[in-house]
């Protein structure tokens, strides 16, 4: 029976999550931001799968399915918003959306 240390799987998920986070914080192009968000969601899905394997349960995969659904819905709405924004401002730069400045 082959074994993998459980922390290695979780560390992989953590690294992917942090890379996605860096993408969200760094990029100004809103399409990249949305892509980085997908990475982060995917990383959390990975963590669920790792945990499911650790306990030998199927619930982890069910949870991943939920995350997948969430990601699909989020991307649909997010891309809709991007299109609307591009129509209004003729740019994909999120720093132009700063009307909430105090």
């Amino acid at each position: 029976m082959e074994t993998i240390p459980v922390e290695h799987g979780l560390i992989l998920a953590g690294i992917l999550f942090c890379l996605g986070l860096i993408g969200v914080l760094t990029r100004r192009n809103i399409v990249f931001v949305l892509m980085s968000l997908e990475v982060m969601l995917n990383a959390s899905g990975l963590a669920f799968i790792v945990a499911a394997t650790r306990w030998g349960h199927a619930e982890g995969q069910v949870m991943f399915l939920m995350i997948l659904t969430l990601a699909a819905a989020e991307v649909a709405v997010g891309l809709g918003l991007i299109i609307q924004m591009f129509r209004r401002y003729q740019t994909v730069d999120i720093s132009v959306l700063s009307e909430m400045k105090g």
């Binding site: 029976m1 082959e2 074994t3 993998i4 240390p5 459980v6 922390e7 799987g9 979780l10 560390i11 953590g14 690294i15 942090c18 790792v50 499911a52 394997t53 650790r54 030998g56 349960h57 199927a58 995969q61």
Partner: peptide
């Protein structure tokens, strides 16, 4: 990530891979 790794380093468990 550092904090995450710090927490992870305290876990020392192997997982047997069973096909689900």
């Amino acid at each position: 990530l550092g904090q995450f790794l710090n927490v992870m380093s305290q876990i020392d468990q192997d997982m047997a891979i069973t096909r689900v």
